[in-house]
Design a protein around this nucleic acid. Structure first.
Length: 282
DNA sequence: AGCTCTTCCTGAAAGC
DNA sequence: TGCTTTCAGGAAGAGC
């Protein structure tokens, strides 16, 4: 699943090839994951791609409108890869993968394609004032936040820490894999209440989140199912997972058996010995 | 406020 | 062997 490290890897790959390119043509397959398909066909042909950025798990392409006649001054394309979304560039005559639903023909003869088996992703053209509405509710960037900001966010909430890590309004970019891996590294049980975390636990969590994400970026993300980077290559961080999908196996730290439980509606993997469960009740 | 359940979607894996 | 059921999950919405 594309989370922050996977999206960051895709963004870095696209930054190397997209800025400066002009979109010549847009072809669409299934469009139920696109907010306004007609808007893409209206505004994108002729537009030039500027910066490629990441906001949490979103990719944002800054665009220069095709010409002065386009009433939109500010134009950007916002993409979320959902669970199985892929953005890959390559020759226009390359073999087309099944479930490829968007083709962007570029002015260098190449093509940028969006493939998404489950179509849990989304695509939206942001005109003028729409950016704040689309991105304004996102929380802290885990790689840019300070420890004090994390402490304030966690200590003000009585939700379980796993739910907080997954909540994009608290931290932007973390999903199930990196939530579990971070909590294991910080030795914090997923059902612990945010407000109850001790100062040194927040410190460990801060370090764990950043270390896990940075290491995952270094290994170009986790390819558990469909994830590939912008050149179609799989990542390697799945080889370094310590708890995710390792239930029944031995904890790398203490040897206890990794367990799985549903927390915050998500399967959660943890070491029952390293990550002590909070006492039940009030 | 925060929890659980449901919906979207498809393919892999487990069950029979 | 082959068909059916279950599961995975990011995000949003409903209901409690």
């Amino acid at each position: 699943m594309p989370e922050l490290p996977e999206v960051e890897t895709v963004v870095r790959g696209l930054q190397a090839v997209l800025p400066g390119r002009r979109i010549l043509e847009v072809r669409l397959g299934k469009t139920d994951f696109i907010e306004d398909p007609a808007a893409l066909e209206t505004h994108l042909p002729g537009a030039r791609i500027g910066a490629v950025k990441r906001y949490g798990k979103f990719l944002l392409f800054e665009l220069e409108p095709a010409n002065a006649n386009d009433p939109a001054r500010e134009l950007a394309l916002l993409i979320h890869l959902g669970m199985t979304g892929q953005l890959v560039t390559g020759p226009a005559d390359a073999h087309v993968l099944p479930h490829t639903h968007v083709f962007f023909a570029l002015d260098d003869g190449k093509e940028l394609r969006y493939t998404d088996v489950r179509r849990f992703g989304s695509m939206q053209l942001l005109l003028d004032g729409a950016r704040e509405k689309a991105l304004g509710s996102l929380g802290l960037d885990p790689l840019e936040m300070t420890e004090e900001q994390l402490a304030a966010a966690v200590h003000s909430r009585r939700a379980r820490v796993k739910a907080l890590l997954l909540d994009q309004r608290v931290l932007r970019g973390i999903g199930n894999i990196y939530a579990d891996e971070s909590l294991w590294r910080a030795r914090i049980h997923p059902t612990r209440i945010g407000a109850n975390l001790k100062r040194d636990e927040v410190h460990r969590l801060y370090r764990a989140v950043r270390d896990v994400l940075n290491e995952a970026i270094r290994l170009r993300g986790s390819s558990v199912s469909d994830y590939v980077d912008s050149e179609g290559r799989r990542g390697e961080f799945q080889l370094r997972h310590r708890v995710y999908q390792r239930n029944g196996k031995k904890c790398f730290r203490c040897g206890a058996t990794i367990r799985r439980a549903i927390v915050a509606g998500r399967s959660s993997h943890f070491c029952p010995k390293c990550q002590r469960a909070p006492r039940k009740g009030r």
